[in-house]
Simulated scan of single mutants.
Amino acid sequence: MISRILFSFILSVSLMSPVWADTPTLRVAVLKFGTVNWELDTIKHNKLDAANGVSLQVQGMAGGSATKIAFQGGEADVIVSDWLWVARQRAAGKDYVFIPYSKAVGGVLVTKGNTAQSLADLKGSKIGIAGGPLDKSWLILRAYAEQSVGFDLAQETEQVYGAPPLIFKSALSGDVDAAINFWHFTAKMEASGMRKLVDVADAAKALGLDPETPLLGYVVKGETLRGNPDTIKGFAAASRAAKTMLANDDAEWDRLRPRMNAQTDAQFEALKAGFRAGIPADHPIDETAAGNMLELMVKLGGEKLLGKATELPSGTFYSSGN
């Protein structure tokens, strides 16, 4: 019993305690097979975390809900989510902070032989959508269809919701006429012969949004940031160093290939290109642009999507001066 209590105590010691480790540790909880693992693997393999004064402990989780539960329950120090979720949590009184990771987004793809040239041509079609009815890409595409061609995408099509791998398989098998999926599945669908009808980044730009605004990022708690600013700064620096390496070093991608689930050379090249295209610029997020995006998401998704957030909460985005 004593040894069990002692073991539990050691596990619960603050991540920054100098008693137990010379280098502070950050526990990063992410999806087991998420693309963020490519960056985290690059950090660990090349010891970029140690070079920046931090040790990453990566915990693979089964789903996005599990990562958030671990984070909110104190079992993880860092997770990956979108900044709209962070804004919602801050509006509800939770002190979470967003560190940019990727601006990669998907699009709506049509199956081989589909002659559609615009979203209006999808009238009567079955669309597979990853992420559910409040998926941000789906909401942006709905707004774009309404603005550009006066077409109600939700009313004029049949939607089928499912997990990204299921939508991927349904699209390739022809069970749906078109699909909206996360960027890496979109890349693999294109490499498998599907055709992109509309890119979400182009739709966002047409709506007056800035496609350079990173949607996905690492999330940390404000108390961790304030208590250990050098550790979070080191983590952000390690992330940026990994991005620089992945942007320029093809050999690093060759090393990563076994964990990328690329079935063909075309899929591998598409995933590599998609990741590189999603690397955000190394400068602070434009909060005005982000505020415009949040305002649109409030109109489209309302309280179900953003809770009490009606404008961008102060302190949402990380900067070295936080």
Rank of each mutant, 00 (worst) to 15 (best):
P280A: 07
L197R: 01
G174L: 12
E252Q: 14
A179E: 12
S192T: 01
K233W: 02
M297H: 03
F168V: 03
D282N: 15
M194R: 12
R226S: 09
P229G: 05
D265K: 10
K221A: 11
T244C: 04
E212K: 14
A201C: 11
P229M: 02
D175P: 03
E269F: 05
T231G: 07
W253M: 04
D265T: 11
R259L: 13
A281R: 13
F268C: 01
G208C: 01
G291C: 09
A281F: 07
S173L: 10
A262G: 07
T244A: 13
E269P: 01
F185Q: 10
L294P: 00
F185A: 11
A236T: 00
N261M: 15
F168K: 09
P284R: 00
K188C: 02
M194S: 09
N228M: 07
A171F: 08
I285T: 12
I167G: 04
E223Q: 14
F185S: 08
E303H: 11
L166P: 06
E252W: 01
E212G: 08
V176A: 10
V200H: 11
H283T: 04
A191H: 08
G274C: 09
L300C: 14
A273S: 12
Q263S: 11
D202A: 12
G217H: 12
P284H: 00
A251P: 08
D177K: 07
E269A: 13
A237W: 03
M245F: 01
L256Y: 09
K188L: 04
G274E: 14
A203F: 05
E287V: 15
F275W: 10
D202W: 07
H184I: 11
R195H: 10
F268R: 02
D249N: 12
T288F: 11
S173V: 00
I180K: 08
A171K: 06
G193H: 13
A187C: 13
A201R: 14
P214E: 06
M260R: 05
P280Y: 01
A178W: 06
A203R: 08
V220I: 06
R255C: 10
D230Y: 03
G227W: 00
A273K: 06
F275G: 05
E295N: 14
S170Q: 15
E190W: 10
M297Q: 06
K243I: 01
V219S: 03
A251S: 13
A281E: 15
R195D: 02
S192H: 15
A241M: 03
V298Y: 11
P211N: 11
N248E: 15
G193F: 10
A204K: 08
P214N: 04
V298T: 13
D249E: 06
G274N: 14
E223G: 03
A201D: 13
P284N: 06
S192I: 02
D286Y: 06
F235I: 01
L216C: 05
V298M: 03
D199Y: 09
E252F: 06
E223P: 05
K221R: 13
E295Y: 10
N248A: 13
E303G: 07
M194W: 04
P211C: 11
M189E: 15
I180P: 15
L207V: 01
I232H: 01
P211S: 14
